[in-house]
Amino acid sequence: MNIPADLKYSENDEWIRIEGNTGTVGITDFAQDQLSDVVFVEIIAEQDEELNQGDACATVESVKAAADVYLPVGGTITEINEDLLDTPELVNTDPYGEAWMVKIELSDPSQADGLLDADAYQKHCEVRLA
């Protein structure tokens, strides 16, 4: 299982890459593996929309499951990944790269302090696989 050390994670299996005041959000390798083949991604959040921590920003569907993606940190949507609409399989093949879902301008960067680091997230995954 791939859990990059430079990202922060939520218990709901989202990751966020924080660079300055900008965050990039997607779902983890663990999440895509649990979902299996992703057939559809819908970004619910709209450009320039202000969302709180925990608000839904996207929906991911596989043939056997559906998952809502929540913002791990609140902020204003600055960019959404339109490519996922046509190539949802990117979520399976490159969850931390091409399959990013939204970029946000963080409203309160300190919210990220409550997220998991890679080690803690690793443990969070292992517990659930047992």
Partner: peptide, 10 residues
């Protein structure tokens, strides 16, 4: 035999 459900959904 088993069906390709991913193809159907995509």
């Amino acid at each position: 035999g088993r069906l390709d459900e991913v193809k159907a959904a995509k």
